[in-house]
Structures are given as C-alpha cells and as structure tokens.
C-alpha cells in the first residue's frame, strides 16, 4: 500500500483533511486496480475458447512443421536410389562443428576413368546445431533440412547417421 506521509510532512502541510481524503482515495484506487486485474483473469477463466494449449503427443497427426524448419540434415534420394552428392566436401568445410564427414572413394566409369564419388557421408546429429550452413554451401543441392524433430534415442551411437542409402549412386548429370 502506498506509504503514508511521515508525521513531519503531515505537520508541515497541516492538513489532516487532505490526509484522510488521500487515504480513502488510495484505498479506492488500490482496490479498483485489483478488481481490474481480477476481471481480466476472470474473463479467461470463463472463456475456454481462448485456451492455447496444444496437446502435443496427441496431435502428432495434425501437427505440421514449417517447411523450412531445420530439424535434421538429410540427403534425398530419388526412386532409382540416386542422390546428387558429388563428394566435393564443401559441406564438411562449411560446418562449424565438424558434424559432417565425407568419405570418398573412386568409381570406375564405363569409359574406364576413375571418378571421385562418396562412399559414405557421415552425419553426427548429436553435434549438429542446425545452422543451415552446410545446406547453403552445397553446390549441387544434395542435402536438405528435414522437418523431423523427435530425435531422442536411448543410445548415442544411433545419432551418428550415414546419409547416403546403401548401394546408392550419384544421379546422371550432376557434376
């Protein structure tokens, strides 16, 4: 409650009436401000349509993440099990956390020439900060962000993923 004027102040003003009036005014204003707040919470108490809770695990089916949501780095493959990664290691260099490790090998092309290709693209989800730098660094758009977010597993080793599918190879025409 507002502090009452000290005795000395009151004496100097010498207005006991003013004091009483102010005292009552203080009480009135105070109670009013409290009631205003109570009206607001009372409104929400009675208006349940304002409730904003999302019942998360129950609404999995309808839950839609934003298209750009950065959940995890994945490498899309087409129906022929082909990806676009050339093994240029640009993503590995762009990553601030050493999350990506590109393991390359040499394919023999039909013409008999040796060609660099990826053996494995190792991705450590536990190190990734979803900063998107690898995605914008990739010259051939081979990796994208997936919208998954339920990443918890019981074993840390499961977080280390190999992004290219087994037996996959590079798409025609991607250099």
């Amino acid at each position: 409650m507002p502090g009452l004027p000290s005795l000395r102040e009151r004496g100097s003003r010498g207005e006991a009436n003013m004091f009483i009036v102010n005292y009552i005014k203080d009480i009135y204003k105070g109670i009013r401000s409290l009631l205003v707040g109570m009206r607001r919470t009372g409104y929400y108490f009675t208006h349940h349509k304002e409730i904003i809770t999302q019942e998360y695990p129950d609404n999995r089916d309808t839950l839609k993440m934003a298209d750009r949501f950065k959940g995890e780095v994945v490498m899309p493959h087409d129906e022929n099990n082909e990806h676009r990664c050339t093994g240029c290691t640009a993503c590995e260099l762009a990553c601030p956390n050493g999350t990506i490790k590109v393991v390359t090998k040499f394919d023999i092309t039909p013409e008999g020439k040796k060609k660099k290709a990826i053996d494995k693209l190792v991705y450590h989800l536990e190190l990734c900060t979803m900063c998107n730098l690898c995605i914008i660094a990739c010259p051939s758009d081979a990796i994208v962000m997936a919208q998954t977010f339920e990443h918890s597993v019981f074993d840390r080793a499961q977080l280390t993923k190999i992004l290219n599918n087994p037996g996959s190879k590079i798409m025609e025409g991607v250099e």
Binding site: T41, G42, Y44, F45, H48, I51, I52, T53, E55
Partner: peptide, 10 residues
Amino acid sequence: RVAAWMQIRL
C-alpha cells in the same frame, strides 16, 4: 484447474 484456465491452459 482454476490456475490453468486463468492462464489459458488446459
């Protein structure tokens, strides 16, 4: 319950 409804929760 009272708390939740006042706080626009379930």
